[in-house]
Design a protein around this nucleic acid. Structure first.
Lengths: 203, 203
DNA sequence: TATTACATATACAGATCTGTATACTTTCAA
DNA sequence: TTGAAAGTATACAGATCTGTATATGTAATA
């Protein structure tokens, strides 16, 4: 056992601190010293775990990738019981996210804004994350019986993205509401209606 | 006359260079020295025009704000002749933007990712820009006869945002196509149909 | 108990960053 | 032609950044 108090290894402490700081301040604006101090760890230890800042950045992104996707899907699945309900629940989950006081937009989006080089692995992780989220949405669309699941998933993923960015800029969580409204319209249009949804689809 | 070759004042040269570098690399990653060198201007001259980096950043954002909004509206109005056509033309204009080789996403979004402080003037400029764009879209929605112009404008602005971010991440301009498709569905739903649009709105 | 792995404290090298200072040159208008 | 405005070239101050080095302390294991 090499755990200390709070049950967090040095490595996890560093990842959490770095995640918090990167998300709030951006990556270039966050120094290694600050991360080490705030993690109550020396720079030596930090560099023992991560050989460079770039490596730390990559580790943080991968760490957050798992964390975020997992939690996102978990909440969606708890909040909606049918696939179609889950597609809408996405935006309720988003709203709760936007309301958190440590919401600074999507880390991956913000990171890509700082790294425009097309072939940096940092970009690829961000790209991959978005792809996986869209894949999850597409699964839900398939299960919900959408005529063209991929098309609907593309649209919904795009709306989620727009809601996130708009919430970040406006600092107004009601953005999620707008997104949900738009999503509902598109879902109703894309899924052959049984009695499941109560939308104003005359006839 | 204090113009030099190419008809650009030192100030304009600096603003253009800084804009290009900020957009490509991000703000924190771009040094004053680089901006000065690339503008073929000494640091002394730079600081004679802008008293600090923050001031330069603000000037660049304001400069780009005018430039971008103006060009955006100009293209939309040239490409679409009726208000409703213009609402769709937004996404054609966006597509052309995404295809440019110096497209690095929305400068304002990227900038907000680097400045999370709620009350920094930098944030306010970004926020204001988005508000003005949405205002323009709302005007078009009103002219197009939308039942609830504000609601439709919120949705379309959100979709545009989502398309921009998604194009930035995926580096695939077809995102604009997805956005246009979603927008069309929402527009058709929000505007009482005359014979103007040829959508598959059975009866 | 001795070893090994991991951590600390602290200092430093070398680069880069923002911003200023000094001294010289060009431009143009009164 | 003279004088002010604006620009150049260059150096530097002081802070901060990434990354390394040295020497010491601690905790569990063999």
């Amino acid at each position: 056992m090499k755990r200390k108090s709070k049950g967090l290894s040095k490595r996890e402490q560093l990842l959490n601190t770095a995640l918090e700081l990167f998300a709030r301040q951006g990556i270039h604006a966050t120094g290694i010293d600050t991360i080490a101090e705030q993690s109550r760890v020396t720079k030596k230890t930090l560099y023992a775990h991560f050989h460079s800042k770039d490596e730390l950045v990559l580790a943080v992104l991968r760490h957050y990738d798992g964390l975020a996707r997992n939690e996102f899907m978990r909440h969606v699945e708890r909040r909606g019981k049918t696939p179609q309900a889950r597609l809408l629940a996405i935006f309720d989950v988003a709203q709760r996210w936007f309301q958190q006081n440590n919401f600074y937009g999507c880390l991956f989006i913000n990171t890509i804004g700082e790294y425009s080089d097309a072939d940096t692995p940092i970009r690829q992780i961000c790209k991959e994350y978005k792809k996986l989220v869209k894949g999850y949405i597409r699964e839900l669309c398939e299960q919900a019986g959408a005529l063209d699941p991929n098309e609907l998933a593309e649209e919904l993923a795009l709306i989620l993205e727009g809601a996130t960015v708009t919430a970040q800029v406006s600092q107004n969580p009601k953005t999620a509401h707008i997104a949900k409204r738009a999503a509902k319209a598109l879902i109703d249009k894309a899924i052959p209606q049984t009695r499941s949804t109560r939308s104003a689809h005359s006839q």
